[in-house]
Design a binder for these strands. Structure first.
Length: 914
DNA sequence: CTCCTGGAAGAAGTA
DNA sequence: TGTACTTCTTCCAGG
């Protein structure tokens, strides 16, 4: 993987240097994870228990032994890279003295709220460690880190890890890490409650790693910092004049960094223009960014941290770490030093729960943040949280049993994300100028819950954290909703209280979107996605509900896709819903498409592509020009090329406004002429439009992946699916998304952790048809009925069903051993299919690219029609890492991507043979 | 002064 | 290889 980047080859060595020098950001993410963990890993890894837990987030406090770098490190990193990694996280931007010598810390991973981490930056790390760390071994230097800050957020993430590619470590652990969440260390042993267990199961927790850097080293000041920081101010922006051009390996250059591998010149931004010469962690003008970066960096290490954070937030403070208190968070930039002070001792960490609470409150309410105080206090323990939470790339249903997590008000389809170099561009808004609203139905307890929000992908693959975008916490006078940032495996997660007094409803006016530079992310080890034109995201909401049986039920809802680029948002057509998902091959039915940027001359083109990306069929649908409005288009479903199909055939269509202005692919399924049409659901919305009840399916191609509940949401009505009982509003609700039946979705319990089902394809998030949630439990997920309209078609069903359980999160390769073992669901059958949806085999999912961040690994790019190409779904062999195509990309893009992939493959083969 | 935004310049990537 | 067009990032300016 590492060797190919967007088709370009380069030597590891080069890479290495690059990474080190430039920014290690990317690299390490996944890897980095490992490295740190690595030491500890052995323990966990070997353990069977790990398996079970892998999935689970590291949440549980674990004892982590983090050696920042092992010997391996030195090899590669000597330079700095390795250290850098730690630094990055570990940095003590604040001047916490970086540890000069690397050390191995054995930490009981306490959980901290990630936000702390983020905010605090290095300091935070320190703090955390302090809290948790039980034993610290110092290793020979860890100097070279790169300042997380320097890195782009994304990079920062990567930076965390010690990832030099070269490092043996990574390679060794590579598998695991991809998704931090998955990472074995994460807490195999972790028991939610068992924080106590920490000790029992040593895991290397990523978070711990940071220790390497001594907190003391202030990022700014610290020697390490100097290297890394100075060199690369966090904001590394390529262009910034300030940056010296050279970034060279070390990125000493601030400006865009250009480096060449094998003759190919890459440009990377190492320095942010803005970056302040002073690399202060926060140096970047935008604090928030910085924080993010930090967090990101920390992430890797912090799976557990995340968990911890969650715990801290939500709950019991048992484990909580002092960290739970987001010291820095509040203050953010202002005083890193403070935080450092606190942390090192771990005093905070050790503080009594009460104290912590107090702290938390202060931080939140008190004052550092401008955010209006919210009645809700984070400090409040949340019993329900369990240490092990599903990885962010796991597909979860939106409803289960009586619970139904719904996005009542969808965000606008466009929101220009801001770069680190920019100021915030505000919170994501809803159409009416208001903000998105999320509500959990069916929850009658008095305990508040925590609503998690992260930025997910909007392509046709399984929903997963978006590698190029991060949620950005918005604070200020205009923000009424309290929020808290936490890093979870490289992904920033915003935690928002869901209070019974508010009917478990939250107005999301505190979430902005940060764009990470493509160059930073693409260089990350394991990152296979490309950023170019990969600009659509979804807001993904999650809530974890403790069940009486001790298990935790996790629900997830994803918003409609949001276009985040400046230009495309203005010009590209966007299909948000389609009234018909499938229809007999004879065609002829009118299909209503709703979305944005439709023009009188827009074309609706149906295409069928083979797995290899070749066009098998393409035809333009007849568009009712008179009906074209900016937001709607009515087209006649063209007859399929083969009227004699015996099984459903999945094709795609897109709206084209002209040469490079195509919408994403949307899925459509042709059914055998005589096949009964199951699906359609009446959609009131459309009725109102005057269109003969065309049920809308918001299933953009991307959304389709069964898992992701992409669709639009909102309508509760949607819940009704043909034939299926409507989701009882809220209570009765069945999990729309998950196919699986069992009410209890996921057993997050450490022991039986099953992955949640995939989100129902589009619906999950949305109110759409209710589908029984998939349970993690032993039972097999039902493959039957997907409620969503999409599913109406046989294919749809399949897709939808895709087994509820996902395998997504798997590690680098996407494959999780755990799954297989741990949950019943693991059974191949049970697994949901990939977005492509066709295949349902669990395996497919297993392959599914890991978290975007980690390493999506190979993603099946082409979509094939299920009927035709059953196998498409299969992921490419693990061995080869190919950049996955961003599914969101337009077809054109897809073509491009395919091209790239081919090149990559070619390259790979070349290398191999060479 | 900071936060939001919209607009756009300039560089890099693609066709 | 050069040109034209896109897309990405960074900047600037105004509210």
């Amino acid at each position: 993987m590492s060797f190919l980047h967007e088709g370009r080859e380069f030597d590891f060595s080069s890479v290495f240097e690059y990474s080190q020098g430039v920014q290690k950001e990317h690299e390490g993410d996944a890897y980095s994870y490992t490295p740190n963990v690595s030491l500890s890993l052995p323990v966990g890894m070997g353990n069977p228990c790990l398996a079970t837990q892998y999935h689970t987030l590291q949440s549980s406090p674990v004892i982590s032994v983090s050696s920042c770098h092992q010997t391996g490190y030195s090899l590669q990193n000597d330079n700095h890279a390795a250290p850098g990694y730690y630094l990055s996280h570990g940095l003590r931007p604040n001047g916490a003295p970086a540890l000069e010598s690397p050390r191995i810390e054995i930490t009981a991973y306490s959980q901290y709220p990630e936000d702390e981490v983020e905010e605090s930056n290095s300091e935070d790390h320190i703090i955390k460690r302090g809290v948790n760390s039980i034993v610290t071994l110092t290793l020979p230097n860890a100097d070279g880190y790169r300042d997380p800050s320097c890195l782009s957020p994304a990079s920062s993430v990567s930076s965390r890890s010690c990832n030099s590619e070269a490092s043996s470590y990574e390679s060794g652990f590579y598998n695991y890490d991809n998704s931090p969440q998955n990472s074995p260390w994460q807490s195999p042993c972790v028991s939610p409650k068992g924080s106590s267990t920490l000790m029992s199961c040593p895991h290397a927790s990523g978070p711990v790693a940071p220790p390497l850097h001594s907190p003391s080293t202030s990022p700014q000041i610290g020697a390490v910092a100097e290297e890394g920081w100075a060199a690369q101010p966090r904001g590394s922006r390529p262009n910034s004049p300030s940056c010296s051009g050279g970034g060279g390996v070390n990125n000493g250059g601030m400006g865009k960094r250009k480096y060449s591998f094998n003759g190919t010149t890459y440009r990377q931004t190492s320095c942010s223009p803005n970056q302040s010469p002073t690399p202060s962690p926060h140096g970047s003008p935008r604090v928030s960014v910085t924080d993010e970066i930090w967090q990101a960096n920390t992430n890797q290490y912090t799976n557990s941290a995340i968990v911890a954070a969650i715990n801290a937030l939500t709950t019991d403070g048992v484990v909580d770490m002092g960290e739970g208190i987001p010291i820095k968070t509040r203050k953010t930039m202002l005083d890193h030093s403070m935080s450092l002070k606190l942390d090192p001792d771990g005093e905070l960490c050790h503080e009594d729960y009460p104290s912590r609470l107090a702290l938390k409150k202060e931080s939140y309410c008190g004052g550092f943040l401008d955010v209006p105080q919210h009645p809700y206090s984070w400090s409040k323990p949340k019993p329900y949280l369990s240490p092990s939470l599903p990885a962010l790339d796991w597909q979860l249903p939106s409803c289960s049993g009586p619970y139904n997590l719904q996005i009542e008000v969808q965000p606008k389809s466009h929101h220009r994300a801001h770069y680190e170099t920019e100021g915030s561009r505000g919170a994501v808004k809803a159409l009416c100028g208001s903000h998105p609203v999320v509500q959990l139905y069916g929850y009658m307890e008095s305990e508040p819950l925590t609503l998690q929000l992260f930025i997910g992908t909007a392509d046709d693959r399984l929903l997963r954290p978006h590698a190029f975008y991060q949620v950005h916490r918005i604070t200020g006078k205009t923000v009424s909703t309290a929020s808290h940032e936490v890093m979870q495996s490289n992904t920033k997660v915003l935690e928002i209280p869901l209070l019974p007094e508010n009917n478990m409803r939250a107005i999301i006016d505190c979430a902005g979107i940060l764009k990470l530079r493509n160059s930073d992310i693409e260089l990350r080890k394991g990152e296979t996605d490309i950023g170019r034109k990969n600009t659509r995201v979804r807001l993904v909401f999650r809530v974890h509900i403790n069940q009486p049986n001790g298990r935790t039920l996790s629900l997830q809802a994803a918003s409609n896709p949001i276009e985040c680029s400046q230009r495309s948002a203005q010009e590209l057509p966007l299909v948000e819903k389609q009234s018909v998902d499938s229809y007999p091959a004879t065609g002829g039915k009118m299909m209503l498409l709703s979305g944005l940027n439709f023009l009188p001359d827009s074309k609706v083109v149906f295409v069928e592509k083979a797995q290899d990306g070749h066009h098998l069929w393409e035809t333009e649908a007849k568009v009712d020009r008179d009906s074209v409005k900016n937001s709607t288009v009515v087209a006649e479903i063209p007859p399929y090329r083969n009227q004699r199909i015996s099984s459903p055939v999945q094709v795609n269509f897109y709206v084209c406004n002209g040469k490079r202005k195509r919408s994403q692919y949307q899925r459509f399924t042709y059914l055998p002429p005589h096949a009964p049409i199951i699906k359609t659901e009446p959609n009131d919305e459309y009725d109102s439009l005057g269109i003969a009840r065309l049920p809308m399916h918001s299933k953009p191609y991307y959304s389709r992946p069964r898992l992701t509940p992409v669709m639009p949401v909102a309508d509760p009505d949607a819940c009704l699916v043909g034939g299926y009982p409507p989701c009882p509003p809220r209570h009765a609700a069945m999990p729309s998304s998950s196919p699986s039946s069992s009410p209890t979705l996921h057993d997050l319990s450490p022991v039986a952790y099953s992955k949640c089902l995939p989100n129902s394809p589009t619906h999950a998030a949305q109110p759409g048809p209710a589908v029984p949630p998939i349970q993690v439990t032993p039972g097999h997920p039902n493959l039957t009925h997907p409620a969503s309209p999409d599913h109406s078609s046989p294919l749809g069903v399949l897709h939808s069903q895709g087994s509820p359980i996902h395998l997504n999160s798997p590690g680098p390769h996407g494959y999780h051993p755990i799954y297989a073992n741990s949950s019943p669901s693991s059974s191949p059958v049970s697994h949901p299919s990939t977005p492509g949806g066709t295949a349902e085999s669990a395996f497919v999912q297993a392959y599914s690219p890991g978290p975007a961040q980690a390493a999506p690994g190979s993603a099946p790019t082409g979509r094939r029609s299920p009927g035709l190409l059953p196998e498409d779904a299969r992921p490419p062999s693990m061995g080869i890492t190919v950049k996955q195509e961003p599914q969101e990309l337009d077809q054109m893009y897809l073509d491009d991507v395919n091209e790239i992939i081919r090149n990559d493959l070619s390259s790979i083969s070349v290398h191999t043979h060479a």
